[in-house]
Nucleic acid binder design. Structure first.
Length: 482
RNA sequence: GCCGCCAUCAUCUAGAGGCCUAGGAUACAUGGUUCUCAACCAUGGCACACCGGUUCGAAUCCGGUUGGCGGCACCA
């Protein structure tokens, strides 16, 4: 039975890296009909942010990555929040001390800081000098009975090599002599990540640990811990990390890394999932566009790349446009609900959708693309006359004539086809190029040079509004000319 | 500094010794369509970091160099 997990820390936003890792863990569990677990790692009380946990679940739910166990849904290994499992970690730390695999360390932070500075001055690598590793039982007892604060440290073997078997990278070897005696239990009796992650992954029967590459160098510590407890090792897979454009580890300094901000900026979850899936992995059928279900059936750790990919918003934009265009109008209307601009009437909103669908990169683009439909437009003589070689009086005359012909159309005949016919009839009687005439009209009616097709736009705008705008444009031209 | 990981177009990638004078996608450029933009179609330029070795033959295997990244906390 495959059991995977993600273990985010509630330190603020829900990070894109979490979505990236979650997607892979989730897909593997779903493919194997196993379980996907979410565990909250809130053992750092200094970095804890109220409400951060809620944001994480909101983000994953938006992406459609549902979990089988976790603080939100419970499960056989509850609780799934580490701060509620403190006794467990303490018990396990003590167990290791009893087995002589760990030891109490009473060194003060001041002392640790001092030796660190000394080591730095001597250009040695900063690490614990193992002062308390060889304390006599009497000394330990003395400290304990004096209620001296302590931490529990792992007794890392001085010799030998710890080998990590990584599904993606193969064998990775670490000299034990290069490993520090890692703190397992902090003086506030909270566990460190290393203790908590190993205890929980074992107790929760996690079979595959799929996490970011930044964890690779702490894997030997974890393996040592598994061995100290006498537990079976899980399968490790270290994913390449996502990078900024400058190739450093992705951070908010260079990118927007908040999952929910992508939602708020008008990205579709299916686009973000598809995009994230393509980072460091490729579809065996070489597909670029595929849904979550397709990803589940085709995802495998074997196809994961070793090179860390660069986050490329351009490609996300492309995918987002594709997914928007794929949406039926009614569905798009639903997705657009949070993005309906102030002052946009419902009937207009519905009519505009097919006109802008293939022009939207994000849902948030809707407002800037459609504003002129329901808000006053700004217009200058220059805007109008710039569209052709013709003079202002001639332009006014042409617009006036067009307006005149439009007025003859009954309200029921106010349709794209009829409007198109009127437009082309005028074109024939003038010596204007199609582009000149229609651009001039477009600017007169919309105030913009790039809009949906002119006559469709006019149909949606309605006879009254179009005539009004045309009249304003020609009067403006005449006035400025005089 | 030490330990570890990595190295194909600008970017995402295909490639697991001959199918590669390196394929696809995005982006870019040009053209087509056209009332503009978008979409769509076509075309184009752009890469195996370097040096050795193994082999009849290397982007693919090995070694080294260089470069990039990650980790070295009572943070995760």
């Amino acid at each position: 039975m495959v059991r995977t997990r993600i273990a985010p820390s509630p330190t603020g936003i829900a990070h894109l890296g979490t979505a990236y890792t979650a997607l892979r863990n989730w897909a593997l569990a779903r493919r194997e009909k196993g379980q996907f677990i979410i565990r909250i790692e809130d053992t750092d009380r200094d970095r804890y942010v109220e409400g951060a946990e809620k944001i994480i679940f909101e983000a994953l739910e938006w992406l459609g990555l549902d979990n089988d166990e976790g603080p939100n849904v419970g499960g056989p290994h509850a609780p799934y929040t580490q701060s509620q499992r403190l006794d467990l970690y303490k018990k396990h730390a003590q167990k290791l001390v009893k087995k002589d695999k760990a030891y109490y360390c009473f060194c003060t932070k001041d002392r640790l800081e001092k030796i660190r500075l000394e080591q730095q001055a001597r250009k040695e690598l900063p690490r614990y000098d193992r002062h308390c590793r060889h304390l006599s039982p009497a000394e330990i007892k003395k400290h304990l009975s004096a209620n001296d604060p302590y931490v529990v440290r792992l007794k890392v073997p001085q010799k030998g090599v710890t080998v990590a078997h990584d599904v993606i990278r193969g064998e990775v070897k670490f000299e034990n002599s290069g490993l520090d005696d890692q703190v397992l239990l902090k003086s506030d009796v909270y566990p460190t990540y290393h203790l908590a992650v190993v205890v929980d992954d074992h107790l929760m029967k996690i079979t595959h640990i799929i996490r970011g590459e930044e964890w690779l160098s702490s894997t030997p510590k974890h393996i040592l811990l598994y061995q100290a407890f006498g537990w079976k090792l899980p399968i490790f897979a270290h994913l390449p990390i996502i990078r900024n454009q400058d190739h450093s580890k992705m951070s908010k300094r260079h990118n927007d890394v908040s999952i929910l901000s992508y939602r708020d900026r008008g990205y579709l979850p299916e686009a973000l999932n598809n995009f994230l899936a393509l980072m460091g992995w490729s579809h065996p059928a070489k597909k670029e566009v595929f849904d979550l279900q397709d990803f589940v059936t085709h995802f495998s750790l074997e196809r994961v790349q070793l090179t860390a990919p660069v986050f490329d918003l351009t490609k996300l934009n492309w995918l987002n446009g594709i997914y928007i265009r794929k949406l039926p109008d009614a569905d798009l209307a639903l997705r657009l609900q949070p993005f309906i601009p102030p002052g946009c009437p419902d009937d207009i909103f519905k009519k505009i959708i097919p006109l802008v669908k293939e022009r939207l990169v994000t849902l948030a683009d809707f407002e800037s693309l459609t504003e002129f439909f329901y808000r006053d437009i700004k217009l200058t003589t220059k805007d109008l006359t710039e569209q052709s070689r013709h003079s202002a009086p001639d332009t006014a005359k042409a617009l006036k004539q067009f307006t005149h012909d439009l007025e003859k159309l009954s309200s029921s005949a106010w349709q794209t086809q009829k409007l198109d016919a009127v437009g082309h009839a005028i074109l024939k009687s003038l010596s204007w190029s199609p582009r000149e005439l229609f651009m001039t009209i477009r600017v007169a009616v919309t105030g913009k040079e790039a809009t949906p097709p002119l006559f469709e736009t006019m149909e949606v705008l309605g006879k009254k509004e179009v005539i009004k705008r045309l009249n304003y444009a020609s009067s403006r031209l005449r006035r400025d000319f005089r």
